[in-house]
Design a protein around this nucleic acid. Sequence first.
DNA 1: TTGTAAGCGTTATCAC
DNA 2: GTGATAACGCTTACAA
Lengths: 342, 342
Amino acid sequence: MDRGPLRKTAKLADVARLARVSTATVSRALTQPDKVKAATAARIREAVQALGYVAHGAARALASRRTHTIGAVIPTLDNAIFANTAHALQKTLDDAGYTLLLASHEFDAGVEARVTRALIERGVDGLVLHGTTHHPSVFQMIGMHQIPYVLTWALDAAGRHPCVGFDNRAAAVRITRYLLDLGHREFAMISGVTSGNERSAERLEGVRQALAARGIALDPGRVVEKPYTLSAGREGLREVMRESPRPTAVVCGNDVLAIGALAECHAQGLAVPRDVSVTGFDDLEMAAVVTPALTTVQFPTADLGTFAGQHLLARLAGRLVEARTELPVELVVRASTAPPSR
Amino acid sequence: MDRGPLRKTAKLADVARLARVSTATVSRALTQPDKVKAATAARIREAVQALGYVAHGAARALASRRTHTIGAVIPTLDNAIFANTAHALQKTLDDAGYTLLLASHEFDAGVEARVTRALIERGVDGLVLHGTTHHPSVFQMIGMHQIPYVLTWALDAAGRHPCVGFDNRAAAVRITRYLLDLGHREFAMISGVTSGNERSAERLEGVRQALAARGIALDPGRVVEKPYTLSAGREGLREVMRESPRPTAVVCGNDVLAIGALAECHAQGLAVPRDVSVTGFDDLEMAAVVTPALTTVQFPTADLGTFAGQHLLARLAGRLVEARTELPVELVVRASTAPPSR
DNA sequence: TTGTAAGCGTTATCAC
DNA sequence: GTGATAACGCTTACAA
């Protein structure tokens, strides 16, 4: 590949000189080509090519007060769920000429405030935040800088913030009622860590609520909180199955935990769903693939990113948009999960 | 939360005025606190607080010619493997005060060149690229802008580029020899998509090479290429098991495919490893958790991000560093995977 | 230790 | 359509 006599990085003025026009014209040719005569534009294109010119983003941002950048703060990249959503978000933004700036806080509110500040400092035009509870300084900064934003995953009950998310609690109620209706009475839950995680907390609470409505309590030993990993799922199952009477229905906080739990069932020689029914919230559409015998609530997490992106883009374009979007979830019954008759 | 009479976004000059110092002093106080008298620094801190001042990154970058930003171009965020590495990379950079800018190209070389350009345009101080084969314009841009970079996952054989990665082919040879030594003669491979993916290609080639060394060929019907998804793994197993004689050893391109393949084995009533041995390359450390009967080659993918980050930080600090780092992989034998005796 | 002032590379507002 | 030129907000010699 010929890389020519290129040496130092060229700037706008160099292009202008070579194309025999002013910097203003080059700038226009680059950002609003239709405002420039075709012949001029062509000459400029050539010069850009010849010099291997790449615009200086910072200078551009400084002068135009626009970065064409959207920031997203996610709990962690280490979890496919969020990476998934981020992926869809990026695609949506990319198609509109925006770049996604991704930051994670590892479930630490302090870190979240810090990275949010860093994103604002970098001049993001918009912000995507996960969940509805945030450090007050976060909203303060957003307010001061007048940055368009949207909250995802959860729904802002008070209606104070634009959001697109799921009603996790309702989903939990739904799957629990389904199990109750089949005749299950002995429940256990392998929940995600609820502290600092509304999503996990709401799912657990939804299960509790649905059970309470039928007069069933979830005793302490029947709820274990685990990080969203496979091995934690195995561990969780081991723990709840020590209870007596043994649970006939185990609800898992998400599909990763559910798959781990299934693996442990196999290891222990427990047949699913004959001996025990395992169900879960399917964030990744993994569970169903691993076994057809798993009833789940499906969350369209990719849509989350897509919708959040669209919402933000619309606002940046000055269009009016719904401030609250609730995405539908789906209860997927794969096989009979009735309790063993005794 | 009191947000005071804050209205418009403050700038450095506002802070300077309030603190009764010059803008130069404020700038110093913010970036090199030790160059400023303690009392002055305190006054400035107060002013910053009071005004809710957030630095303007673009202006800062323009003036200082530094963004404290590292760009990483990964194939896709939709795959936990890369998200994993990105996560480790981010942590490493974060600790050093750098922010990671993540972009993905969805396995399209053209897109890769485009997003790399976008990152350079945004002024990244360094660049992390996946794999060793890239569009020539990518290296041209990097060269022109003198941007420190590092290639990951694979190793640059020619030694032209700084890299940190695995020897995928050697790993493939290793696991294949292991199976050969146990007595397997009927092989099949559920490979990742090799086109545009060196990693997949090298794994497949390694298997082929090891088999050829013992006079065994991998017939077309015994190799299927699939995307790294669970359902593709199931499909892949179905396809290769149609061969006759039926394979006794199925090597999977990664752990996601392996888990999918295992699920299909269960569905078909095939016992693992009694009827068929499934092995794979464990990018995510998932396979082993799902079943203890799975022999794998473990790739420390998180280390990849950590090392790549450290390499780049060292270069940015002007320190000399190895241009080539090969990370060790590990063959993990979980259970006997000898072929069924006939 | 602090202040003055000259850039950094674009964009945007005017004229022409 | 195109060209001067003044911002944009900060850093950094150089002076004091």
